[in-house]
Structure formats: C-alpha cells, structure tokens
Simulated scan of single mutants.
Amino acid sequence: MSESTQAWVAAGVRAVIGAHTHAQDAGRTDDIVALYTPDGVLELPGTDPVQGHDALREAFKGWAPTQPQLHMVTNTIVGSAGPDEATASSDVLFFQRGEAGWAPLVAGHYEDTFRRVDGNWMFQRRVTTYQV
C-alpha cells in the first residue's frame, strides 16, 4: 500500500474515532450508532458484547451523560489491512466535571477494527479494556 493510501486510511480512521468521542460526550446516541456497521460490536469488560444498531442504541442511551464529561483519546496507532479495512489502538482517559471541577475517573485502551462502507469508515468492532 502506498504512503498516500496509508495516510488517507489513517486520516479517515482518526476522523471516525474523533466523531465517536464528540458524539458520546454530547449524548448524541444516533450519531454514535451511525458510526458502526449494521453488525458492529462493542465489547466492554464484565459485560456481554453489544452487537447491532438496535443494541448499540439502547446501550448508548443508557450511558448518556448526566453531567459534563470528556473522553480524551490519544496515542492512536493506525494499522491497515487494505484500502477498506483498518485497525487502531488508542489510549483513553475519561473525565467528568463535578462540583470540584474536572476529575479523571477511568484510564483505558481501545482496540478498534474498521471497515469502509460506501466510502465511509465505520467501526466494525471496539474492544475496551480498563487499566487499574
């Protein structure tokens, strides 16, 4: 794969990760779900995998913010299996704002798999782990 194709894949994947983060922190459930393939999967520690748009919508509705929050996604490394498939590994810090100000609550890691559908990069799978 050429360097320009790799850069194009990386830019597309990073844009989807950023869109997910902003939509999640704003509580825009439908915008989050639209970033997943119809059979997309979200895996979180201690829970069964959440698969498909209906299940993802219900899950993210339940996690809608009740106070200001920020997911800070960083150290993203994008890998590509081809022009229509990619992976990414990222670190994430989750903050909430309370009466005393912003506080970090969770540090974690994302392992993402993406597929390009109709020209758009979409999450096929997101596996989240938490560091303690």
Rank of each mutant, 00 (worst) to 15 (best):
E3L: 11
S4H: 13
T5N: 12
Q6V: 09
V9S: 11
A10N: 13
A10K: 10
A11N: 10
G12T: 03
G12C: 11
V13S: 05
A15M: 09
A15W: 06
I17L: 14
H20D: 03
H20Q: 11
H20T: 04
T21V: 09
A23N: 04
A23Q: 02
D25L: 04
D25A: 05
D25W: 01
A26D: 14
G27W: 03
R28F: 07
R28W: 08
D30P: 02
V33W: 03
V33Y: 04
Y36N: 01
Y36R: 00
Y36T: 05
T37I: 02
P38G: 08
G40E: 04
G40P: 00
G40I: 07
V41A: 10
L42R: 08
E43W: 03
E43Q: 02
L44Q: 01
G46Y: 00
G46Q: 01
T47L: 03
D48V: 01
P49W: 00
Q51S: 06
G52F: 08
G52R: 08
G52E: 13
G52D: 13
H53Q: 11
D54L: 04
D54W: 00
R57C: 08
E58F: 02
A59L: 06
A59K: 01
F60N: 00
K61H: 12
A64W: 10
A64S: 15
T66I: 03
T66C: 05
Q67D: 11
P68D: 12
Q69N: 11
Q69L: 08
L70T: 07
L70V: 11
L70N: 11
H71Y: 13
N75D: 15
N75Q: 13
T76S: 15
T76K: 06
V78K: 06
V78D: 06
S80T: 03
D84C: 06
D84T: 15
E85I: 07
T87F: 13
A88L: 10
S89V: 13
S90N: 06
V92F: 12
F94Y: 09
F94C: 03
F95T: 07
Q96N: 05
Q96A: 08
Q96T: 09
R97L: 09
G101H: 13
A103G: 07
P104M: 10
V106C: 03
G108L: 09
H109Y: 07
E111K: 05
D112R: 00
T113W: 00
F114A: 07
R116V: 03
V117F: 11
D118C: 05
D118S: 08
Q124D: 15
Q124H: 14
R126C: 07
R126W: 12
R126I: 11
T129C: 02
Y130K: 03
Y130F: 15
Q131N: 10
Q131R: 13
Q131Y: 09
